[in-house]
Simulated assay, not measured.
Amino acid sequence: MDMQYSRLVEQIPPSGIRRFFDLLSGQKDIISLGVGEPDFVTPWSIREEAFAALDKGLTSYTANRGLPELRREIAKYLAKYKLRYDPETEILITIGVSEAVDIALRALLNPGDEVIVASPCYVSYQPLVMLAGGQPITLDTSKTKFIPTAGAIAKLITPRTKALFICSPNNPTGTTIPEAELRKIAALVRRHKIFVLSDEVYAEITYSGQHSSIGSLPGLQDQTIVLNGFSKAFAMTGWRVGYVCCPAPLLEQILKLHQYCAICAPIMSQYGALEALRHCQDEAVKMRRSYLQRRNFMLYALAEIGLPVVKPTGSFYVFVDIRRTGLTSEEFALRLLEQEKVAVVPGDAFGAGGEGFVRCCYATELVLLKEALRRIKKFHKNLSVL
């Protein structure tokens, strides 16, 4: 039957990450440096808290905003980053950060509003801007060592600009925006009276000093939407708990969308998240130290191979420059997979500026990382003699 589907949805390509990893299905002996997921199991006390919730029969809906005690704990946690949010009116628990991004954009945008998106970026940002009726405007950061700058942003601002979307620490590049540059961006945002959507899900995986949030800068909280969650810091990807923090009037609009599309995040997951904030900060620190050790190994090994990278200062990714090989990002990734059974993500999956790079996730057991880098070295050497 000839059916007419949503023209808007038909225009949006499938996820470049998932499209590539469909190729892995059924293949054996693959070492994956692809999917951005901690290799740690969720800490035991978090799992135990979820078991206890189930044992008590806590299987109902929660309030749409989420458990009050979890929102209060999030407010305490964010205070260490100099963010002040009222847990009653300015914090909403969502089904992962993905839902938070989606409903925040839909509540904020009107048809034709422009959102400047620092790119390379996580694959969902630009499609979700489009699905919310907005127009993504790409800020290519590849010429500034993958750091969005106030000067570059200023050139893209028009009367239709509604928001700026940043992610620091960044997926896929591992870079963080220096505080001095963040202050310049904040001054620009204040002057033009636009919103900032700040994805801070990698805040706990910052290697050089404490994470800085743009929302903590003077006069910016009323223009900032902070997006965060538990997946990366506490190895809770499958639990699907995130949150959005913003001024109360905007949160009321976001809440409407959450009520209709999700109702609430799973109650057991919320109790697990509560345990994470109350008692598992030390576990997050241990994981970060492990990632730092692996990052240092990756930097050493890639330098030895002759593949340049911009040094990651956060998250658990390296964005490897493969332009000297003469291959496109997809050619490099496909041939590496076929010849050496190592999976990486082509950089063009992350938008403008990503071509000529591949993303490697080092949230992988060190012994497997070493074997993967041995195979990459062999692959690169064979390319060099062709």
Rank of each mutant, 00 (worst) to 15 (best):
P43W: 02
V115A: 01
A163R: 01
L334Y: 11
Q4S: 14
H279W: 05
K311H: 14
D2H: 10
N171L: 15
V345C: 10
P87A: 11
G353W: 00
V41K: 14
S25L: 14
P178D: 07
L156E: 05
A333T: 03
M130F: 10
A79N: 12
M3H: 14
N170G: 15
K286N: 12
A235R: 03
A186R: 06
R191K: 15
S290D: 15
L337H: 02
S119G: 07
E200P: 00
K193Y: 09
G151A: 10
P159T: 07
D282H: 14
K143G: 11
E10A: 10
L164A: 04
T89L: 03
K184G: 03
V196L: 03
E283T: 10
E181V: 08
P346K: 01
L108P: 02
A187M: 12
L58Q: 06
A372S: 01
A235K: 04
R240I: 10
G219L: 13
N171C: 14
R289M: 13
R7D: 13
V9A: 15
L197V: 08
H192A: 11
D282L: 14
L156I: 09
C121A: 15
P38R: 04
A187H: 10
L251M: 06
K56D: 15
L250S: 08
F21Y: 14
S213P: 00
E88A: 11
T158P: 08
T173N: 09
L78H: 07
S269E: 02
A363E: 04
K370N: 11
